[in-house]
């Protein structure tokens, strides 16, 4: 038998813990390198963009959870009454959202938000952030609703739900406490990690598209700067193009890490974050044997 290890060591020895360390380590390493070799305005822009992206993704996770939870309870309530028309309407609407490719939906949402900003209808930056996150959440939400409903279904198929019901326990307590909190925390958290990944990915992609394609109409001035819009900037794009140059011309490599730092940093931030979040979610699932 192995001796018991302190919780921190146990956490770091798992895949999720290891990748969390790798991610944070990479961020710090990159930060130091950029602090030394990247010009100050660009450095500040990147930090600003990274924090904005992270912030919107985190907000989206929060909204997604809240909206999915409310929707799931609504589904359960509407599904347990005799007249099920409300249930059908709700699931019809949800399936409609599902049928719009996420990227297209979010793109239109952002364009709408940008229009509001231009028209001066949004009083503060905070509101813009919140609206962007809600828009994103709306299109990621179905996945989480599926998970929550699946968990309820699982336990109603077993005797679990009925056994508690006939003891007189209220159904909301069974769902929220016994099913969600006690038995699905891990599943939900795991889903939220991957929601965070999706939110990052979609956020960067939409901003990239908007900045590349719609630059004259909706631009980084109206919406907060994020990694996606930074990458779409002309100089960043040049930096990325330089990677290709290095593939055929290896001698160019050293310059990559000094001259083309801005684009490279942004691209690296996007890729390492997506990769780390994915690995953390996989490792987390492995640890808890999901």
């Amino acid at each position: 038998m192995k001796t018991a290890r302190p919780p921190l060591v146990k956490f770091v020895s798992g895949k999720d813990g290891r990748w969390l360390c790798i991610w944070i380590g990479a961020l710090f390493g990159l930060g130091i390198w950029d602090y030394l070799f990247l010009n100050r305005p660009a450095f500040e822009r990147i930090i600003n963009g990274f924090i904005n992206t992270l912030f919107i993704a985190l907000l989206s996770v929060g909204f997604t959870l809240a909206m999915a939870w409310i929707m799931t309870l609504a589904f359960h309530r509407l599904g347990s009454v005799k007249k099920r028309s409300g249930f059908y309407v709700l699931s019809f609407l949800l399936n409609l959202i599902r049928s719009i490719p996420q990227i297209v939906g979010i793109l239109f949402g952002y364009i709408g938000i940008a229009a509001l900003v231009t028209a001066g209808l949004l009083p503060g930056k905070a509101i813009t952030f919140i609206l962007m996150s809600i828009c994103m959440s709306g299109f990621i939400m179905p996945e989480v609703i599926d998970l929550l409903r699946e968990r309820i279904d699982h336990y109603t198929k077993l005797d679990f739900f009925n056994a508690l019901r006939v003891c007189g326990v209220s159904q909301w307590r069974i769902i929220n406490f016994d099913i969600f909190w006690k038995n699905s925390r891990i599943h939900i958290l795991n889903k939220l990690i991957s929601v965070f990944g999706s939110a990052m990915f979609l956020q960067c992609s939409v901003d990239f598209i908007i900045s590349v394609g719609l630059s004259s109409d909706v631009n980084a001035v109206t919406l907060p700067t994020t990694l996606g819009s930074l990458l779409a900037k002309m100089d960043s794009k040049q930096d990325i193009l330089a990677i290709g140059n290095t593939l055929t011309n290896p001698a160019y490599m050293p310059q990559l890490f000094f001259q083309h730092l801005q684009g490279l940093t942004v691209a690296f931030l996007i890729v390492i974050t997506l990769l780390a979040v994915y690995q953390i979610s996989c490792g987390y699932a492995e640890r808890h044997r999901l």
Binding site: F201, C204, S205, F208, L231, K237, I240, L241, I243, G244, N245, L247, T248, A267, I270, V271, I272, L274, L275, Y278, Q279
Partner: peptide
């Protein structure tokens, strides 16, 4: 390999655009 598979399409495309 994971890093490549995880890159958004535009990162990959721009990084090899000069060659292909």
């Amino acid at each position: 390999a994971y890093a490549v598979l995880f890159s958004p399409a535009y990162v990959i495309a721009y990084s090899i655009r000069t060659e292909f």
